[in-house]
Design a protein around this nucleic acid. Structure first.
Length: 162
DNA sequence: CTCGTGATTGACT
DNA sequence: GTCAATCACGAGC
């Protein structure tokens, strides 16, 4: 279950990978909505985004943390970590746990036949808090990080308010 | 618990 | 050459 996300825009969002235009790496962001945008960062980590805009508009949502539900044993093996609350509480961690890499860039996440599928989920209402996005140096006034404030599975990234 | 630092690759100046 | 939408680990409190 997704418990933490960040929104990224296009040419008007200086923190977005799309801000400076199309490159081979960020091409998926300019493509079809409902696809994955996966990138490799800091020499050793992958991050998963969902493309959310179409037809001239550009936008994506970074998946920053999930709550493990099924396949916990596999995720523990992939991460070599036992502690449940630190298994998927970060964008790089969850990609490692779910074995997500660049070969899955641009896959359709709306199809059951896809290697990645994301769907809505029945359940109680959640409290959603917002804050500045993590790890960026511009557009820090925008509070475009959204997370379940009651979840134990959100990332523990340090946040600096102006 | 918080803080500082090294790892490691690809995209861009 | 610089830097990045990060993580693990160790020191110190």
């Amino acid at each position: 279950m997704i418990v933490e996300t960040e929104a990224y825009g296009g040419f008007t969002d200086s923190a977005s990978h799309a801000f400076k235009g199309i490159t081979k790496r960020n091409l998926a962001m300019f493509g079809q909505e409902g696809r994955a945008y996966i990138y490799f960062i800091y020499g050793s980590h992958h991050c998963l985004n969902l493309v959310t805009k179409n037809e001239g508009e550009v936008g994506a949502v970074l998946i920053r943390a999930i709550e493990p539900a099924v396949g916990v044993d596999i995720m523990r093996k992939n991460r070599n970590v036992n502690e449940l609350t630190s298994l998927t509480n970060g964008p790089g961690k969850l990609c490692d746990a779910l074995a997500i890499n660049l070969t899955l860039d641009k896959v359709d996440v709306t199809l059951p036949s896809s290697p990645i599928m994301i769907s809505s989920r029945a359940g109680p209402e959640r409290k959603v808090a917002s804050s500045p996005r993590v790890g960026i140096t511009s557009a820090i006034r925008r509070k475009w990080r959204f997370y379940d404030s009651d979840s134990e599975f959100v990332s523990r990234a340090r946040l600096i308010y102006p």
